[in-house]
Amino acid sequence: MQIFGVDIGGSGIKGAPVDLDKGDLAQERCKVLTPHPATPDGVADGVKQVVDHFGWTGPVGLTFPGVVTGGAMVRTAANVDKGWIDTDARALFSDRLGGLPVTVVNDADAAGVAEMQFGAGQGRRGTVVLLTFGTGIGSAVFVDGLLLPNTELGHLELNGKDAEKKASSKAKEDEDLSWEHWARRVQKYLAHVEMLFSPELFIIGGGVSRKAEKFLPHIEGIKAEMVPAQLQNNAGIVGAAMRAAQDQHV
Score class of each variant (00 low, 15 high):
L130V: 10
V186Q: 06
D81E: 06
E180H: 09
P149G: 13
E180D: 14
G58R: 12
L20F: 11
S94A: 08
L177W: 14
V102T: 05
I85P: 11
F142C: 03
R75N: 04
G55S: 07
D107V: 01
V250R: 05
A244T: 13
I204L: 14
D174F: 15
A77C: 10
G160K: 11
D45P: 15
T76N: 04
D52K: 14
D88S: 09
G61N: 02
D81N: 04
V32S: 09
M242N: 10
I3E: 14
L100G: 11
D45T: 15
H218V: 02
D21Q: 08
V67Q: 12
K214S: 00
G126V: 04
T76H: 03
M116E: 06
I3M: 13
E175Y: 15
V6N: 00
R125A: 12
G121N: 04
L190E: 09
T39E: 01
M73N: 15
G205W: 01
F118I: 03
L148T: 05
D95F: 15
G46P: 10
H36I: 12
K31D: 08
N233G: 09
K214V: 00
Q248A: 05
G145C: 01
D52S: 12
L231R: 03
A163N: 04
K165G: 12
D144A: 02
A191I: 09
G55I: 04
N159K: 13
W179V: 07
F118S: 03
G221I: 03
E213C: 00
N233Q: 07
D41T: 13
V129Q: 12
K22R: 14
L62P: 08
V68F: 06
V143C: 15
G5L: 08
P228E: 01
N79Y: 05
I85G: 13
G123P: 06
Q49S: 05
P17C: 10
A171I: 14
G61A: 01
A244C: 07
